[in-house]
């Protein structure tokens, strides 16, 4: 693909090619719109990196008591058991697949094949909607939590969780976990000790910005903020793609002679996928 000739609209400027920085020509050989889209994406990448680094900061600070994502996101549609990470892996695949359909729309644009551009853009929009829907579904389960819930202790912050067997995801009868005072992780409490703690505790289900059934509230705060910010990007991407799709249907780009608008919205769409790759790793896998 690197062999594509660069198209210059002004033959009179070809004498500048000896010094591309001498003015009168674009040294990057890239159009204004595409270059600015890249710079916007660079600034957006800084924003997301800032958020993810802040998340990493807090996670390192509370490393001993940070919840394992595998314990939190175990739901799968139409299946009552627990499979950790399966649904997020599916979401990741959907987003990567919609990135491919987007790039196929761009490729069809290079052949001025309007029908194919339409087709692939529709699939991209469908993929985006499935992803946003999945995210809503996951938020719903995170907010509602488990039927058994957890106990928010009297200090208003510490959560006493039911102990779960990590392999079967079955609750261990009467066993609870509370953060250890010496920063060594969690300690198990049971019997009279657990009953005493429960007396002054509040029974909570799920997570919101104040408390989190699965452990430290910061986990929920970062989860809502970062996946929410990313979800908003996906949502805007779907809207942008839809508007560009209307342009394709109306023949706007056919008349213009090129489909660069599809490339620009494609850049944004791929960036959304790119960010998700990092969110997936740092929120769910690690």
């Amino acid at each position: 693909m690197a062999s594509h000739a660069v198209h210059h609209t002004a033959p009179s400027h070809s004498d500048h090619s000896a010094n591309p920085w001498g003015g009168g020509t674009s040294p990057f050989k890239i159009s204004y719109g595409k270059m600015m889209m890249w710079f916007f994406l660079l600034s957006d990448a800084f924003t997301f990196s800032g958020l993810l680094t802040a998340y990493g900061f807090m996670r390192h600070k509370y490393e001993d008591i940070w919840p394992t994502a595998g314990d939190v996101f175990t739901h799968f549609p139409f299946y009552s058991g627990h499979i950790e990470l399966a649904y997020v892996a599916f979401m990741t695949f959907i987003l990567i697949a919609s990135s491919v359909t987007m790039v196929l729309a761009v490729e069809a644009g290079h052949r001025m094949d309007r029908k194919k551009v339409q087709l692939w853009m529709v699939w991209t929009i469908v993929g985006g909607l499935i992803f946003v829907g999945s995210q809503a579904w996951e938020w719903y389960h995170f907010i509602h939590g488990t039927p058994q819930g957890a106990y928010l202790l009297a200090d208003g912050v510490t959560v006493m969780r039911h102990k779960i067997d990590p392999h079967t995801h079955v609750l261990e009868e009467g066993a609870f976990l509370v953060p250890a005072n010496d920063r060594s992780g969690f300690v198990e409490v049971a019997g009279a000790e657990a009953a005493k703690l429960k007396e002054t505790a509040t029974h909570i289900h799920g997570a919101n910005l104040k408390h989190n059934e699965y452990g430290i509230p910061l986990f929920a705060n970062f989860f809502f903020f970062i996946t929410g910010f990313h979800g908003f990007h996906v949502f805007s991407g779907v809207i942008i793609n839809f508007l560009i799709f209307l342009g394709v249907v109306n023949g706007t780009y056919e008349k213009r002679g090129h489909y660069e608008m599809v490339e620009k919205s494609g850049l944004y769409w791929h960036f959304v996928d790119l960010v998700w790759v990092f969110v997936f790793t740092f929120f769910y896998l690690l």
């Binding site: 693909m1 594509h4 000739a5 660069v6 198209h7 210059h8 609209t9 002004a10 009179s12 400027h13 009168g24 674009s26 050989k29 890239i30 159009s31 204004y32 595409k34 491919v100 790039v103 196929l104 490729e107 069809a108 290079h110 052949r111 001025m112 008349k255 213009r256 002679g257 090129h258 660069e260």
Partner: peptide
């Protein structure tokens, strides 16, 4: 449409034919 001659309206002349398109699509897959 007016084409300005002092800027790149469309940077990469990426128009290509079916044979090259096929190669590019295989790469994406």
């Amino acid at each position: 449409m007016d084409v300005r001659d002092d800027v790149y309206e469309y940077s990469l002349d990426n128009h290509h034919g079916e044979t090259e398109g096929k190669k590019i699509r295989t790469l994406f897959l």
